[in-house]
Amino acid sequence: MLIVDQQPLFRRGLEEALPAASDGGVRVVAGTDRADSAAMLVRRHQPDVVIVDLELDTPGPLAALAAIRRAQPRLPVLALTRHVQGVLEFLGAGASGVLLRTRSPAGLVPSLLAATGAATRPAPQRTGPQLTGKERHVWTLIAGGASTAQIARALHVSERTVKRLTAGLLRTLGVANRTEAAALAGRAGLLDERRSGSPP
C-alpha cells in the first residue's frame, strides 16, 4: 500500500498498525505528503492499493490521481477524507472508493482492511437487474460518503427505511459494510452510468 497523506504521524501510525492487524498481509511500502510524488512512488514501489488524502496541498488530490492513473491505469485508488465535499468528483475521476478519516490511524484500520480487500479482488460485473433503481441510488449516495440521514432526505424516506434498503443492498453486493460498498462503486461502473445519464 502507498499512502499519500499530508500528516506524517498518521502515515506512520498506519505503517505500524496495518501489518499487525492483517497478520502481515497488508503493509505500507511508501508514503508521501506530496501529490506530485505519488506517480513516481507508484512506479518505484508497485503498490497494490493507493490511499490519497483529499486535503492534499497543490497540485492537489485530483492531480495525484491523474498522475497515478497514467502510471498504472488499473491500480485501485481510495480517497481519505473527513467530509463529503469533493468525494464524488474524486470518484468520478476514477477512484475506487472512499474512506472516512478517523482521529487515530488505529481507528481507520478495520475500514481500511475491508476496503483494501474489496479494491484488490477481481472487479465485479457491472450492476444489472439484480439491483433496483432505489438500491442503485442508495449505492451512489453511499459512494459519495452520505450519512443515513442525508440519504433519507435525498430519497424522501425515513432513516429506518434507509437502513433497511442499505442492508438489502449490502447483501446483494456481497459486501460486509458501507465502506466496502463505497470501494466497489467505481469499479462496478456505477459512476460511469451516472456520467452517461443513466437513471439512478
Rank of each mutant, 00 (worst) to 15 (best):
R11P: 00
R12P: 01
L14W: 00
E15A: 15
P19F: 05
G24V: 03
G31E: 14
T32C: 05
D33L: 08
A35N: 04
S37M: 14
M40A: 13
V42M: 04
P47E: 06
V49H: 04
V50E: 04
D53N: 13
D57C: 06
P59I: 02
A63S: 15
A64I: 06
L65H: 09
L65I: 09
A67I: 00
Q72S: 14
P73D: 09
L75T: 00
P76H: 12
L78N: 10
A79F: 08
L80K: 01
T81R: 09
R82Q: 13
V84T: 15
L88H: 07
L88K: 09
E89Q: 15
L91T: 05
G94I: 07
V98C: 11
R101Q: 14
P105R: 05
A106R: 12
L108N: 08
S111L: 13
T116Q: 03
A118P: 01
A123P: 05
T127W: 14
G128L: 00
G128C: 01
G128E: 04
T132P: 10
W139D: 14
T140E: 13
I142Q: 01
A143P: 06
A146D: 12
A152D: 00
A152C: 04
R153G: 10
A154H: 14
E159Q: 14
T161K: 12
K163C: 04
K163H: 12
L165H: 13
A167Q: 14
L170Q: 07
L173W: 08
V175T: 09
A181F: 00
A181Q: 01
A182Q: 02
A182D: 06
A183F: 04
G186A: 11
L190T: 13
L190A: 12
R194A: 15
R195D: 09
S198V: 13
S198Y: 11
